[in-house]
Design a binder for these strands. Structure first.
Lengths: 106, 106
DNA sequence: TATATATTTAAGCAATTATCTAAATATCGA
DNA sequence: TCGATATTTAGATAATTGCTTAAATATATA
């Protein structure tokens, strides 16, 4: 969970995620979108992979990356708990009186 | 946006956010939950404040912190775009063929 | 098998971050 | 106004991060 949040806390990595939302891409294709060396992109991809946000699969010479939305859903869940939270919550700011759920921890 | 993500990418800060979800608290009350010096907590609170995730208000001797879910909703929106996304999306992994929305950019 | 292409790993460095202690500031209450 | 309490600001330092170039690895193809 922490690794996921940390992985998301970097603009190039979020950009990569958005690129993979549209379609799967090879490391080289991803690198083309950036003004950054390929090793740097490779490093970012590795960070995303370790966080479980992307998966990779070698296809011959290339390595194709895909988005794994499962982990994104977890992050989403953490955040939802704070806003919508469990039940009837009018959302948005001001006085809160949440009803706690089975605590998720972390 | 980036500041929000970065603010969330740290366990103590996420813990603070969770504490404030339950109810508003003073800096000192928050600090009691941690094994960390008060200046460190103060610094984290400042980070969260700059990211717009919390607000503070002096109440006499104390400074009371409150959660601002508005910014959390923005982060939430960013993530939702990747999973649920715009319309009919069966969610979860595998082959994607999203219909792009008005791009949000970051 | 030799060469070219795709990608990662290694090594190093500068910038950022998280933390601490000490000192400063603000408010309360006698 | 003085001392106690609450909190932040300053200054320092160690750890982490993001980036680079050079080298290594894996696959394809001639």
């Amino acid at each position: 969970m922490n690794e996921s949040f940390k992985a998301l806390a970097d603009p190039p990595r979020r950009q990569i995620i958005r690129l993979l939302r549209d379609k799967d891409r090879t490391a080289g294709e991803i690198a083309e979108f950036f003004n950054m060396s390929k090793p740097s992109i490779s490093h970012h991809l590795n960070t995303l992979k370790h966080a479980g946000l992307v998966q990779d699969e070698r296809q011959g010479q290339f390595i194709r990356y895909t988005l794994n939305t499962t982990v994104l859903d977890e992050v989403l869940g953490w955040l939802l708990e704070l806003t919508d939270s469990v039940q009837g919550n009018n959302r948005r700011q001001k006085k809160q009186e949440h009803s706690k759920s089975a605590k998720p921890e972390e």
